[in-house]
Amino acid sequence: MSALAEMLQGEVARAAAETLLTVENVSLTFGGVRALSDISFDIRKGEIRAIIGPNGAGKTSMLNCINGFYHPRSGRITFKGKTRQRMRPYEAASQGIARTFQNVALFKGMTTLDNILTGRTLKMNRNFFWQLLRHGPAMREEIEHRIYCEDIIDFLEIEHIRKTPVGKLPYGLQKRVELGRALAMQPDLLLLDEPMAGMNLEEKEDMCRFILDVNRHFRTTIALIEHDMGVVMDISDRVVVLEYGHKIADGTPDEVKADQRVIDAYLGVSH
């Protein structure tokens, strides 16, 4: 029993030690505005990494750099051992980086199912001529991916809205569909930009559960931006804190909570 536990622990430790993504000295400027200056941190395989900070600290800019929307002025980003300079978002997607957006960016005219199926685009290989027929191999491929998407729908408990156009859904469900669409990509790294913004307590609890389940069940590494400190401190393994484009702290939730600079810049003191 203890041998098994030791072995498992060793497994966990080894997995934790492996670095999935490294950000080294990344700087990003828009004209005269320095959005990010000299940011370095890493994301280990299998962890939940939170990025926090006051508004305008550069959290979303950081995610945009990671998945290729912005090209950093200087610095290096290494993902799965591959360092890159400039990269288009679809290249990031094909390397296994998926993301959700702060303001929901679903395909509003399409149904929930079609949205999630769109996440499988990169995994579909049948060429244009099979697509013209939509029979034989093309249809078999569709069904194969449909089964995968049905698992996600089942996992996120959104079976009842499968065929509803997402534009008609309430906000909380839209956020969930967006998570499903990102999951359909089978990402190695999942970036969540404020997954709980504008949700009530119950919806937040649901979302937390989904995030933890995704992390454990699919073994997906997650980097998330969130303003709800209770949530961040509870679910994340390590936290990096940004302020005005600078990194001011990096560590476990307890370390970060105790850091005087973080308290001054962001957390504040309860009176």
Binding site: N67, Y90, A93, F101, A105, G109, T121, F128, R134
Partner: peptide, 30 residues
């Protein structure tokens, strides 16, 4: 033929580009 196209992967990628091109690019649609 058109109905086959718009109901499959290609139709979905077209509609994705229409509805939210940034997110579409992120799904790996060029």
């Amino acid at each position: 033929i058109a109905s086959n196209l718009v109901h499959g992967r290609i139709g979905r990628s077209w509609m994705a580009v229409r509805d939210m091109d940034i997110a579409a690019e992120l799904m790996g649609i060029r």
